[in-house]
């Protein structure tokens, strides 16, 4: 039986609301801002509503460009649209000053160079348009891990 390719796409635009609008604008301007939850924990990316109580969160905290890997996995064969075209690590990264980690990519080059606890730093995208991809990826901080 023959088959033919079928690619379905949904190219809509959506408004993202007040909290994500501020977050995406701050990323575009090169700042890292999270929100503080009801239990004092700082979320980056910011949480719009408290994951425990459901309360709307509006206390903002500015964070450093450095952070720590809390868990990671090795993407040995990168797939289309992923942050890097050469093998890289996926990681949950807690930024300094934050408590809840974010998902992003680490350009470690080789699986042997990264481990849980590795120190990393934001690499900004050359062109930023307001979105999580304004962070191109994270780089390992040499000698610091």
């Amino acid at each position: 039986m023959f088959t033919a390719p079928l690619v379905v796409a949904y190219p809509y635009k959506r408004t993202v609301g007040t909290l994500l609008s501020r977050f995406f604008q701050s990323l575009q301007e090169g700042r890292l801002e999270g929100t503080k939850g009801s239990d004092g924990r700082v979320y980056f990316p910011p949480a719009e509503f408290d994951p425990v109580t459901g309360r709307q969160l509006d206390e903002w905290v500015t964070l450093a460009e450095t952070g720590t890997v809390v868990t990671w996995a090795w993407q040995s064969a990168p797939q289309p649209d992923q942050p890097l075209e050469r093998p890289f690590a996926w990681a949950l990264i807690t930024l300094d000053g934050a408590d809840v980690p974010l998902l992003h990519a680490v350009d470690a080059g080789d699986m042997a160079r990264i481990r849980t606890g590795s120190r990393v730093k934001v690499r900004w995208a050359d062109e930023r348009s307001g979105g999580i991809r304004d962070i191109a990826c994270f780089d390992l901080l040499e000698g610091a891990s």
């Binding site: 993202v16 994500l20 990316p45 868990t71 990671w72 996995a73 090795w74 993407q75 797939q79 289309p80 649209d81 992923q82 942050p83 996926w90 990681a91 949950l92 974010l102 998902l103 992003h104 990519a105 849980t116 979105g131 999580i132 991809r133």
Partner: peptide
Amino acid sequence: YMVTPLWPGFDSLAALQAR
């Protein structure tokens, strides 16, 4: 907004959990 634009795939996310 935070995950889909990175296209991680479920295998990679499960691998983070396993680690």
